[in-house]
């Protein structure tokens, strides 16, 4: 009979279980501190890693002369950007 399962006992046993101990225990505080350290470290790492990437790419672009002075080119298949064309932000006069 399913009703004979000691469900209440399981519930009590499981409710008493907590990773590294019950709430407000030393283990829980330690886990919280470790999580906060990871959070802060990842935020700092996001900044440092991106700065390294951007600086390297900017240096590459400057050194490679990828942005030469403006000079006329033959009209190609690309599109010209008219001063006020486009669908996004100009609702018209």
């Amino acid at each position: 009979m399913i009703d004979s399962f000691p469900f209440d006992e399981w519930t009590d046993d499981i409710a008493a279980y907590w990773t590294f101990g019950p709430e407000n225990s030393t283990g829980t505080y330690i886990l919280t501190v470790l999580g906060i350290i990871l959070m802060v470290a990842s935020l700092i790492a996001f900044v440092l890693l991106e700065r390294r990437k951007l600086d390297a790419q900017a240096q590459l672009l400057r050194g490679g002369g990828i942005l030469p002075p403006a000079s006329p080119t033959a009209p190609g298949p690309g599109f010209a950007e008219p001063p006020l064309a486009g669908p996004s932000t100009d609702p018209g006069p």
Partner: peptide
């Protein structure tokens, strides 16, 4: 990838990036 172009006041169509950078 097609480079963006821009039309200068004199009507010439040039690559946009150097103009915008300057």
């Amino acid at each position: 990838r097609v480079p963006e172009t821009i039309v200068l006041p004199d009507g010439q169509e040039v690559e946009a990036a150097p103009v915008l950078f300057e």
